[in-house]
Amino acid sequence: MSEITVLVPCYNEQESLPYFYPEICKVAGRMKAAYGVDFSFIFVDDGSKDGTLGVLKELAAGDERVRYLSFSRNFGKEAAIFAGLQHATGDYVAMMDADLQDPPQMLEEMYRGIAEEGYDCVGTRRVTRKGEPKVRSFFARLFYKLINKISDTEIVDGARDFRLMTRQMVDAILSMSEYNRFSKGIFSWVGFSTKWLEYENVERVAGETKWSFWKLLLYSIDGITAFSTAPLAIASLMGVLFCLLAAILIVVVIVKTLVWGDPVAGYPSMMCFIFLIGGIQLLCLGILGQYLSKTYLETKRRPVYILKEDNKK
């Protein structure tokens, strides 16, 4: 009999878990009756500061299918995903959030896509961003357009982490043990046939989002630097263009001085050019710094996460 492991990263989800757990159990019961598939659950407590761990301990005490992993501190959602995938034992692995923005009932259609249609992965994507701030939605769409233009790895607009994968695909993802992880890109990079299910945005059932605009911006930069070297090429191109511009300006200044004999005029415009070129240089150094910092962190070979508690050990 096949088994689905449901992986749920949790950070301060004390309010959401009492709603999520009964819903996923209902879906598990229906799918066991309809398809004969067993379920196991892995909840990864990513250093929560509320009572999330206490709730998980209560769930584990009443349900032997529940396993919880608790980090020594907050390592981020990417680390929680990696830890959950490492400890998942099912023939299929489903990933979803605890806030019910990922509708558990979609698991039935996702399972059919793999078991009956032969896909290796069934993912979900939002077709609307209802309830999300307009500025945030604008920059999100801009990010997907940008990264798909500068990267060879296609990342579907609106793609969620909510997906069901075969064991073969999970093993391929785990083989990419890099420290700086961008799962949306990794899921696409490993390949495998993927079916996309579209659905409208769903509001959180409880609690507040952990993703501020600033965190999303930094996450998008991580994605770009992880799956594209185009910014480095752009920095090099800007260097070449400004070298040419500088050569042209030198010729203009010399000719102007010889013809009009007025070397002092044009001081304000020259200062503008100096500030512009200085800004471009700092931008290029910043781009180089991003890639250098990622390389530096990789060479340290630090663990992606540190596990503090595990109820199955």
Rank of each mutant, 00 (worst) to 15 (best):
I4P: 12
C10G: 09
Y11C: 11
Y11K: 15
Y21A: 12
Y21V: 05
P22I: 00
G29V: 00
M31Y: 00
M31R: 01
V37A: 05
D38Y: 01
F41Y: 14
I42N: 10
I42M: 03
G47H: 04
G51H: 12
G51D: 14
T52V: 04
L53W: 06
L53N: 12
G54K: 15
V55N: 10
Y68W: 09
Y68A: 05
F71M: 02
N74C: 14
E78W: 10
A79K: 11
L85G: 09
Q86Y: 02
H87V: 02
G90S: 11
A94K: 12
M95T: 05
D97S: 04
L100Q: 06
L100K: 08
D102C: 00
D102Y: 00
M106C: 03
M106L: 15
L107I: 11
M110E: 02
R112Y: 08
R112Q: 15
E117W: 01
G118T: 03
D120M: 08
C121D: 14
V122E: 06
G123Q: 14
T124S: 11
V127C: 13
V127W: 12
E132N: 06
V135I: 08
A140E: 12
R141I: 07
F143P: 10
Y144A: 05
K145W: 08
L146T: 06
K149I: 06
S151D: 09
D152C: 12
T153Q: 05
E154P: 01
V156T: 09
V156F: 07
G158A: 02
A159Q: 14
R160H: 00
R160W: 00
D161R: 02
L164A: 10
M165C: 14
T166M: 11
V170Y: 01
S175C: 09
S177I: 02
S177E: 14
S177K: 10
F187K: 08
S188T: 06
G191Y: 11
S193C: 13
W196S: 05
Y199H: 14
E200S: 10
E200A: 10
N201H: 15
R204P: 04
V205R: 03
K210Y: 11
K210H: 14
W211D: 02
L218G: 02
I221R: 13
D222Y: 06
G223Y: 01
I224G: 09
A226L: 06
A226G: 04
A226Y: 11
F227I: 07
A230T: 12
A230E: 15
I234W: 05
L237Y: 13
V240R: 15
L241N: 05
L244W: 04
V255P: 01
V255H: 02
G266F: 00
Y267L: 15
P268G: 03
P268I: 01
C272T: 04
C272D: 07
I274T: 02
F275H: 01
G278M: 00
L282G: 02
I287T: 03
L288K: 14
Y291H: 02
K294S: 05
T295E: 11
Y296L: 09
L297K: 12
E298H: 04
E298G: 06
P303K: 12
D310A: 00
N311Q: 08
K312T: 15
K312M: 14
